[in-house]
Simulated scan of single mutants.
Amino acid sequence: MNIFITGAGGFIGGSIATGLVRAGHHVRGLVRRPELADALQRLGIEPVVGDLDDRALLIGEAKAADAVINAASSDHRDAVEALIEGLAGSGKPLLHTSGSSIVGDASGGEGTEAIYYEDRLPEPTADKAARVAIDRLVLDAANRGIRSAVLCNTLIYGHGKVPGAESVQLPRLLRQAKKSGVVRHVGSGGNIWSNVHIDDVVELYRLALEKTPAGTFYFVESGEASFRDMTTAMADVLGMGKPQDWPLDEAKQEWGYEMASYGLGSNSRVRGQRARELLGWKPQRRSVIDWIRNEMV
């Protein structure tokens, strides 16, 4: 297939694009920074220099491709609308990348028993309403002749394929620890996130391109862990003693409101069965704690 993917210079998009090239597909990858073009070419990805605000470019690439993956932003509605316009009536796949902070509770680092399922989603918080509206827009595109799907990733761990690109959550904890000499988590660290290894994410996107029914929402997860358990493993590896609690307001000063409240200070416990049942996805990596202890640093 000829595949167009946004965010090809990033952690998720670059890893997916590289995996699809290895699977025999031809991939054109949107990248904002021209200096990343050479890195993409070395990975076998044909670079397209541009950004999500270039509506004409996105429509043109979508029309020319056999399939489109949006891995650049979960929150850029104009870009999603342009990709849908380019694909309307074609029957081609559109895979949109969302994130499971859509069910985040901004608990300040405290735990919860609440678990969410693909067919029983809560109403989003005000902070996440716009993202959920975009997810629904993509799913509704099934009514416009597009084989659309939303892949809602949880905490992703592992190393990416594009040099310098990294995941969102764990690297921030690691950088703070190295800077301060103290591993910290928001609040008590009792908050829990579902998680998944990047290699398993890549395989799921490959399967979804081939098999997904139109209008399908997937949670992408293969396990879960509390932030306290993750920071404890990190502290052991770094030789920094026990991790410390960090009040939310202080964490916001380090990471900002969004990251401290949702990315690192919320619960996001989900269960994803559709990828396994509909696509035959079989994740191979099941323990983020093992990865932190053996591979992260």
Rank of each mutant, 00 (worst) to 15 (best):
N2W: 00
I3M: 00
I12V: 14
S15N: 06
I16H: 03
T18D: 04
G19N: 03
L20H: 00
G24C: 05
L30I: 08
V31S: 01
R32L: 11
L36C: 02
A39L: 12
L40W: 02
Q41C: 08
P47A: 06
V48P: 04
D54Y: 07
R55W: 10
L57M: 06
I59G: 00
I69K: 03
I69G: 01
A72D: 00
H76F: 03
A79G: 02
A79I: 06
V80F: 02
V80W: 00
E81C: 05
A82E: 05
E85M: 09
E85Y: 02
G91T: 00
G91I: 00
K92R: 10
L95G: 00
H96F: 12
S98P: 01
I102Y: 09
V103T: 08
V103M: 07
G104K: 09
A106K: 14
G108T: 13
E110T: 13
A114Y: 10
I115G: 01
Y116M: 09
Y116R: 09
Y117S: 10
R120H: 14
P124F: 09
T125R: 15
A129K: 13
A129M: 07
A130D: 02
V132F: 12
A133K: 10
D135S: 07
D135H: 03
V138N: 04
V138H: 00
L139T: 14
D140N: 06
A141M: 07
R144F: 11
R144K: 15
I146G: 04
S148D: 01
A149I: 12
V150C: 08
L151T: 09
L151R: 05
I156F: 07
H159E: 09
V162T: 05
P163K: 12
G164T: 10
G164W: 06
E166S: 12
L170R: 06
L170T: 07
P171K: 12
R172F: 03
R172N: 05
L174M: 15
L174P: 04
A177T: 13
A177L: 12
R184W: 10
G187A: 11
I192H: 09
N195C: 13
N195F: 06
V201A: 09
Y205W: 14
R206H: 09
A208G: 01
A208F: 02
K211W: 07
P213T: 13
T216K: 08
F217R: 04
F217K: 12
Y218T: 15
S222F: 05
G223P: 08
G223T: 11
G223R: 13
E224N: 15
E224D: 15
E224Q: 15
A225C: 12
F227Y: 14
M230E: 13
T231M: 13
T232N: 01
V237H: 05
L238R: 14
G239T: 14
M240A: 08
G241K: 14
K242M: 15
P243H: 10
D245W: 11
D245G: 04
W246C: 14
D249E: 15
A251K: 10
E254L: 11
W255C: 04
S266G: 08
S266H: 10
R269H: 11
R271I: 15
R274H: 11
A275T: 10
A275K: 02
R276H: 11
W281D: 06
P283C: 08
P283A: 06
P283K: 06
Q284V: 10
R286N: 04
I292A: 10
M296W: 11
